[in-house]
Nucleic acid binder design. Structure first.
Lengths: 201, 201
DNA sequence: TCCAAAAACATAACCGTTAGTGTTACGATC
DNA sequence: GATCGTAACACTAACGGTTATGTTTTTGGA
């Protein structure tokens, strides 16, 4: 009843993990492009079709923990203290995410990704999906209603902040600056009913 | 001296055009994924290798005129009137680009792109490159020096504006709103020397 | 115990892309 | 105008990611 995880799901998870671990190890050892899907499958002792039943593409083998990213972001919106303003909450969360991925322990994987165009491209297209769900989370917050365009725009800007800060020489400083810009942008985003220009009576 | 285009270059351009035209026609007729590279090559009466010597990838067959996009953007920066502020110039240019691609004549191609994940992904990764060269153009302007981070950030925001406005139900209105946000963001971006916070004397 | 669903499997193919290896047509040079 | 280097093109064959097809094994529950 509680969490009756049966043998079946446990085995499935184990297989998935074994594939991911094996793949990452091989990629780090020999380089991403130098390792074929068939190599990974053989080393993990599974069939190629099994591998693809767990992972949608070769690139996905590297981004195992990536729904985490999405969850962290949306939770920063939906789970923040009542009346806490949106942008600072996102700032904190993105800061934590950037620090997490610029940490020394994550360096080998980062180098792996940066070294392969295919992986970089894949990552960017993931970010777009993340931006969409972030926009949805913002849209779902009754406290702040600024209109669809404003929500989606801010969501994109936040994702940009993550990706730009990561590449900067001083990620923390860059992130501060970008979020100052985002704060200003959010401040002037208009509410749905406000269809007038900038003029007042 | 002037533009001595020889037969060779003319033939090359003709081959390229024939391939692109054939590809687009087939894609529109049967759908992008339903047409293989070998189909295009056969119909254009060239070898597969020839096709790939003109186009880096299958997706590139659809985005023939895409350096235009990049050129328009950078020219909007480098070629604007002296002392004309940056953001409005970019606004005008992006507006023109959005209108161009939401025009009725471009609709079939847009549907083609939106209908294929591969094409959407390819387009987005192009946009990233465009953002980089836009950032470079901004960085190259002696009139405005706000620092690398600010430049790259604004460049990304502008690209976002294009991509978000295109998908909006009212592209013009959405673009106006987004550029109001960008204007605000640009206004608070700090100059390279300015390492202080928000405080004044 | 037996059944239906789920998971893993094996094989073979499809498709984009590239390497290797010529062959032709052009433009420049003498 | 004959020669020569080279850019463009062609053909074959392969490589690597991905998918279709159909089969066998494992598992949870009736």
């Amino acid at each position: 009843m509680t969490v009756p995880i049966g043998r079946r799901e446990r085995k499935k998870a184990a297989t998935r993990k074994k594939i991911a671990d094996t793949a990452l190890r091989l990629f780090l050892e020999r380089g991403y492009e130098a390792v074929g899907i068939r190599d990974v499958a053989a080393e993990a002792d599974v069939a190629v079709t099994t591998l693809f039943s767990h992972f949608a593409a070769k690139e996905a083998l590297v981004f195992e923990r990536d729904d985490d990213f999405e969850r962290c972001l949306t939770r920063a919106v939906t789970g923040r203290a009542p009346h806490e303003p949106l942008v600072p909450a996102l700032h904190r969360e993105v800061q934590s995410l950037v620090r997490h991925c610029t940490a020394d322990s994550a360096l080998p994987v980062r180098r792996l990704i940066d070294g392969s165009p295919a992986l970089r491209e894949y990552e960017e297209s993931m970010r777009l999906r993340h931006a969409e769900s972030l926009a949805a989370a913002i849209a779902g917050d009754p406290g702040l209603s600024k209109g669809t365009t404003a929500n989606r725009t801010i969501a994109r800007f936040v994702i940009d902040a993550y990706s730009l800060a990561r590449e900067a020489s001083d990620p923390d400083a860059a992130l501060d600056e970008i979020f100052r810009m985002i704060e200003a942008a959010w401040a002037v985003a208009r509410t749905p009913a406000d269809t007038t220009g900038t003029a007042g009576p």
